[in-house]
Design a protein around this nucleic acid. Structure first.
Lengths: 342, 342
DNA sequence: TATTTGAGTAATATCGTTTACATTGTAAAA
DNA sequence: TTTTACAATGTAAACGATATTACTCAAATA
């Protein structure tokens, strides 16, 4: 029942070779003869032998494991995890598997020990950070880490002057594209719903894109058509409600996220404003629900599969001693009914 | 730059004690004097020392890590991971963290090596399986594992005669409750949309609940009101379309999943059947989109937070040598507009 | 005073690999 | 025949901790 664990010595004994030969044979070293290898592999299979990961890691000082650290600002209510990040975790895991890496998952509080807890304790060879916003952009500890050859990449807005590697979606130009689409379909008075302060860099970039579209089209931007909102349905609802109350006229809403857009749609409907006839709506993210609201939401889709793969590739580069570059990912405008061109 | 890694020897040297004392002091052993402990802790912090996980694991033969294995039948198209499982992964990770366990995540193909790859190779102390359906219920390899004190629990339907520990939602009685709710709001001809073969045990149990509700209310079940469907929007759409074509009369649909229900709603709408006036609809799962379809979908919510916590508790019991019992989790009927009682 | 006790610490043996280095055997080159 | 080269294997030293056993030195007991 509680049989002794099979070790490489058991295999060696049964195969009549030394333990080191077993190790070499199973790790695919070219230094071992073909016959010997086959024999050893057969015995290993028969005895149901598996290399002990801890011993192997300890000796080789590699773990073949990536830590994925998720900082979810949900804060007190840990129940709801941002679905976008969950999807990302999925694609990271799959990308990592393609390189024979395991993924160690952890939800974090914003702390300075995240790195030590994973790479320095040899749990993982590198760390992928999700949801850290611009925390790692200017943080002093992060600065130190970068200069002590730490291995980590961050999903987040790519901003000039960042020292470490960031991978993020091309917020600015895809936002510009969305607003441009509204212009081309005849809308003029496009409002922006979402935070525009630098504290939430993603929203800020999307706001920049919104402005770019205006200047590219030589249209003048009405600052009263910008209303702040947090990334939630409720906040989007309130923002649009207050916009309506200002009596300011508008014929389209560009929302900084789908959640905001969904709240916005609710507010419009409550005031009997027809979508898209009177007001067109565009969101950002393409969360699953976006296609189910009515009218179905036009939005910008970030390719999470590519994102996961690229994050993994960058962190592996870093582990192998290269210095990965930050990278923008293109996003795609998904046109549905809410913007009125379908 | 590439400074030598700090080990417990460095601490020992600086503190003027032996290395073993350092180990004890930091692992909270009561065998070490108070002054010595404080001194050692201070030095450890100063030198930014972290216990090497691999060395520690190797020696102690424990990893403080749980493997979460997700078998997602999506198959060829790995892009879309079942959002329900993603949520589950989140709650498992958070529950595990509460017990100071890490989570190692892996997507699997259906294979017989999943166990060896994780616990036998000492990557993890135990394994939580998601999405294995009834694979582990009757599988011979699983049988062997159970009798060789392997540590694993499975999320899935609890079925009599299972040898290992399963945790699943109480499909049968919550389905019965949902159908009962339809009866009480005056519906008579309730159809069931979803597979009823034992191959998908969850759906089968939900079908059993549907039947139970009929027999409890002494109503006779019309077998022509049962249409098979897979767990997808498209399949739900087709199923309901074919039901409509049979000309069989019905005033409510109980769908085995929300995705099916969403497809069903589409089909009804295409035939200009009013929801809920002519036909009420109830789903199962409460995926995020359920509240966004229109009319908002009445459904049955599985409590993923509890589920994650219980899975973790069971696997820890198993690791500690106890024999955890399988367990049902209650589910909750979430009443929205699609069933017409709101 | 001699002996016991026990708290605190030191010494040492693992845990199961990987890997640098040493050794052997065989065949080609001198 | 002797040397050389190379391929295949063996030997043994890490890797960095934990666990067990053995020691020290004070206070308590006889």
């Amino acid at each position: 029942m509680t049989q002794q664990k099979t070790t490489s010595f058991d295999i060696a004994y049964k195969a009549g070779v030394s333990q080191s030969t077993v190790s070499r044979a199973l790790s695919g070293s070219p230094l071992v003869g073909k016959e010997t290898r086959i024999k050893i592999q057969a015995i290993a299979k028969e005895l149901n032998y598996k290399v002990d990961k801890n011993a192997s890691n300890l000796r080789s000082q590699k773990t073949k494991t990536l830590a994925v650290l998720l900082f979810d600002e949900a804060g007190t209510d840990n129940t709801m995890i941002n679905p976008f990040f969950l999807t990302m975790i999925g694609s990271i895991t799959q990308a990592a598997a393609a390189y024979q890496y395991d993924v160690l998952l952890s939800f974090q509080q914003l702390s300075d020990d995240w790195y030590a807890d994973y790479e320095e304790s040899h749990r993982a060879d590198g760390v992928i950070c999700l949801g850290y916003g611009d925390y790692l952009t200017y943080n002093e500890k992060a600065h130190d880490l970068i200069h002590s050859n730490a291995h980590f990449v961050t999903w987040g807005p790519v901003i000039a002057g960042q020292e470490s590697c960031f991978v993020g979606c091309d917020n600015t130009s895809s936002a510009a594209q969305a607003v441009d689409h509204l212009f081309h379909s005849g809308r003029e008075k496009v409002a922006f719903i979402g935070g525009a302060d630098e504290h939430c860099p993603e929203f800020y970039q999307r706001y920049q894109g919104y402005k770019t579209a205006f200047s590219n089209s030589k249209k003048t931007l009405n600052p009263r058509l910008h209303v702040n909102a947090q990334n939630s349905e409720q906040s989007g609802f309130q923002a649009v409600q207050s916009l309506i109350l200002t009596q300011e006229s508008f014929d389209a809403l560009f929302c900084a996220s789908d959640l905001i857009a969904i709240g916005a749609i609710k507010a419009l409907r409550e005031h009997n404003i027809a979508i898209p006839r009177e007001v067109a709506v565009i969101g950002f993210d393409d969360i699953p629900s976006a296609s189910y609201v009515s009218p179905a939401l036009t939005t910008i889709r970030q390719n999470t599969v590519d994102a996961g793969r690229i994050l993994v590739e960058k962190i592996l580069q870093s582990i192998h001693g290269e210095q990965p570059e930050s990278e923008f990912l293109p996003a795609q405008l998904i046109i549905r009914k809410s913007c009125g061109t379908i």
